[in-house]
Amino acid sequence: MSPSRSVGTLIPRRSEPLDEAGGKCHAFRRRLRLDEPAACGYHLPIACSSFGGSGGERNFGFDPIHGGAPVGDDLLMTAQRTRFSFEADVSSTSICDCVHALDLPLDSTSRNLTRYALIELLMNAVRASAETGAADPVIAEIRRDREGVRATVTDSAGGFDLGCLPYDFSSDPETVDISSSAFEAYRKKHDNKRFGLGLLMVRRAVDWFELFFVDASGEPAPWRGKGSVQGTCARFSVHGNERAS
């Protein structure tokens, strides 16, 4: 079967409230509206088992109760690789929704940390894109494999000076003192709207992380000041036992 890609938009759809665990909880169903024919059986090995035809709208699998807790708003997006493009004006709520729409084959803790890392990196990238007026969208690619999940977030926001962070980025993240005066000064400088902790906590949360700058062709490029690079690329991976929880 052809490994052609499927492109579309996520369409949220509110379902009927479920009466679960003694109270009402709302569950949501999302659909992926495909712009192009989908080689479903190839790259949607689970969700597409109930699909048919090609193109058009597809209802994803829906699992209103998982592990005894209501997680009905989780879309079972089980593609091996999922690539999101986020415009600079996308809302944080939409970013969170998209990240939570991913079915991550990890145990509960690893899944939560992966979501956190993705949202943190995406928010950094989208915010930088908005601030710099970047023309290109932020691209996030999430890949599932037997090891766990690997993700890449790339923006075209011109990079940034790692020296402006309130700690030495090259140091072991576990040794950084987040109660230091440098962090306090950073928070004060940014009126407590930025903590300077995002990348640090992502590095602490995931199993592997790297960050580098890229040139216009997407190749790694050294930071030599403003205008020297096209954007930033952050990669990480999280390992975890699938559905171990």
Binding site: P3, R5, T9, L44, M77, Q80, T82, F84, S91, P137
Partner: peptide, 8 residues
């Protein structure tokens, strides 16, 4: 503001 692609 979001597009999604599913890839092998």
């Amino acid at each position: 503001g979001v597009r999604v692609e599913l890839l092998p």
